[in-house]
Design a protein around this nucleic acid. Structure first.
Lengths: 341, 341
DNA sequence: GTGATGAACTAAAACGCTTAAGCTGCCTTC
DNA sequence: GAAGGCAGCTTAAGCGTTTTAGTTCATCAC
């Protein structure tokens, strides 16, 4: 089955190729009658614009690229990620853009992917996730002048537009809440230490502990899996001055921690309060329900996509370099209470 | 920054454009010395093949398309989906293919996406998920002769290659296991009723209940969310001859069900045994740990991707129409036991 | 009646690549 | 020594669009 081309359309409508092109792109230069005849002809033979040809003659690809610097096998573990993609897709889909995802093995591979995408003219813009300290991707993207939006910030993003939430404020608020409940020893079971947002939360956590004059804090880094979450919890709860509250960087680790407490005959929330970053169905469904730092990840993703479309010039070019989304809200549930005794 | 073209490479190496093309594509027609000179030149100026131009002159796009017929906001709920994508990516990434995802609002939108992708020559092949009864996508794809692989089957896939697992056998085995423990009343809390695999499991469940001469079974369909899983559980546990075991179609519903049991002062597994389809970190981490029907979803996705690459002719063209992956294995944990009394 | 204007349309170049066909020399072969 | 073959290259056509620079022709002002 041969694909019809624009010249088939032109022939059928009895006009030149360029008249057909004008009509099909909604440009002036053809009369309304002719335009309609051309559109009808295109419809009748089921014409679709060949995207390669369009790109070759200077058009846009209508593709947004996103490299994922995580091992493919761990992608499914973090619901944050998939929700972000959902939000991005919800905007791209209605704008006729597709999302091209590529899992990459490491930072070097990711840089290479960006260079390829740029050189091959495969994407109109890209979304950068999992920002790290001294991230070489920033400089590369600035150099290539590839339209890009960073998920994260507001520091260390160079001149790139970015979308960020005030994790530090949310962390401080959470520590304050626990302090108000009477907790003096608080633990934090965090994600990967080289991710920038982990560091920001770490710092905010430490600062807040000073502000509220806590007796002690403890931070343990993990790879976000339930397994490491459980190990870290076991470690904290076995220490001499064990914490009476733990803040987890995701919900699967919080659940794992709750099981460890159970295993050690500590009850939640009487002996141990538990809070999870990123609310999810899981937090709501489990008993006791888990107090969570809720953010609308889907809306976050949507905001990222909208900013990127602005940057690639699809919509009005409102030049916003940094966009802030609402800070996570603390949603108190049954897993937090004043400490026992 | 101007992107270098093949003619820049040719000029720098002092040869014609076609000589450069031959060399850069590893074809015969240039001497080894010249070839090396050309490759060096390309490297020095950072040349990348313009993919649009390559596609336009008959090449492949090196892109695999995947339309997702679910609302974007629920994408994050089902870990199965993301794990499948991980597996697919793990194969595509090393073969230099990218995955293009597009969320679609319904079946009609999906058909339109396929027609566009075909007409625009945007993808080399596509992956079809969430097979339904009398699925119109099958006929369309057969008609367009677009290389495609269906996730599911083995029935109702037309002539399309597909990858499937024997869910029916796993269902039967599970019912048999519960029967052997002494359960006579079993419930099933299933996913969307119009998905083909839901129907297959429903049928197998009903058949097995006859085989093992159970007293009663009950099937409730849901949208896979914890909320509906909880509601369905409440309904089953409130009925006169309430089940002593429930089989859930995913793990989040199983957890929700466990909480409902707790709420109703029924303990797991003494009063209620719980089994979840699709093992996950969640099943392992929660207390009691949940007995699960484990399948290697990542490997499943990888198999799908490999088959599709075969079909588009990347690898050897071993013509396998239907590929079977291992049936889910029952992994007994603490959430199942003989019924009380 | 003349020249200017502009709407409606066409011809042709350009985008960057692949590839079929053609052109050199040089080496064999008889 | 003429014919043939072959490696190693070049020329040029073609892929399906977009877009620039025309061309034609009717209309209008004076």
């Amino acid at each position: 089955m041969k694909r019809p081309t624009i010249s088939d359309v032109a022939q059928r409508a009895g006009v030149s190729i360029s008249a057909a092109s004008f009509a099909l792109n909604g440009r002036p230069g053809v009369s309304d009658r002719t335009r309609q005849r051309i559109l009808d002809a295109a419809d009748e033979i089921g014409w679709h614009r060949n995207s390669a040809a369009r790109v070759l003659s200077g058009g846009t690809t209508n593709v947004i690229g996103m490299a994922i610097p995580r091992p493919a096998t761990t992608l499914g573990v973090e619901p944050f990620f998939m929700e972000l993609v959902s939000g991005i897709e919800s905007v791209l889909a209605v704008s006729g853009y597709a999302l091209m995802m590529q899992v990459v093995a490491g930072v070097d591979a990711e840089l290479e992917v960006y260079r390829s995408w740029w050189g091959e003219r495969r994407v109109d813009g890209i979304i950068v996730v999992d920002l790290r300290g001294d991230d070489p991707r920033i400089a590369l993207l600035e150099g290539l002048a590839l339209p890009a939006v960073v998920v994260g910030g507001p520091a260390d993003v160079g001149s790139l537009p970015h979308v960020w939430a005030d994790d530090a404020a949310a962390t401080a608020e959470t520590v304050g809440y626990l302090a108000a409940l009477g907790h003096r020893r608080i633990g934090r079971i965090a994600g990967l230490p080289d991710l920038l947002h982990t560091r920001r939360r770490d710092e905010a956590f430490t600062e807040a502990s000073a502000t509220y004059e806590l007796d002690s804090i403890d931070i343990v880094h993990t790879d976000y899996t339930g397994l490491e979450g459980a190990q870290a919890t076991r470690r904290l709860l076995s220490s001499p001055g064990r914490p009476t509250a733990i803040l987890y960087d995701n919900s699967i680790m919080a659940v794992a921690g709750m099981s460890v407490a159970d295993e050690m005959r500590l009850s939640v929330p009487e002996d141990l309060s538990i809070i999870a970053w990123d609310d999810s169905q899981l937090c709501q469904v489990i008993r006791p329900a888990i107090t969570a730092l809720a953010r609308d990840v889907t809306a976050y993703g949507a905001r990222v996509a909208r900013l990127l479309l602005d940057v690639v010039g699809k919509n009005g070019d409102a030049e916003q370099r940094g966009v802030q989304v609402p800070a996570p809200r603390l949603v108190p549930r049954s897993s937090t209470a004043p400490p026992h005794r």
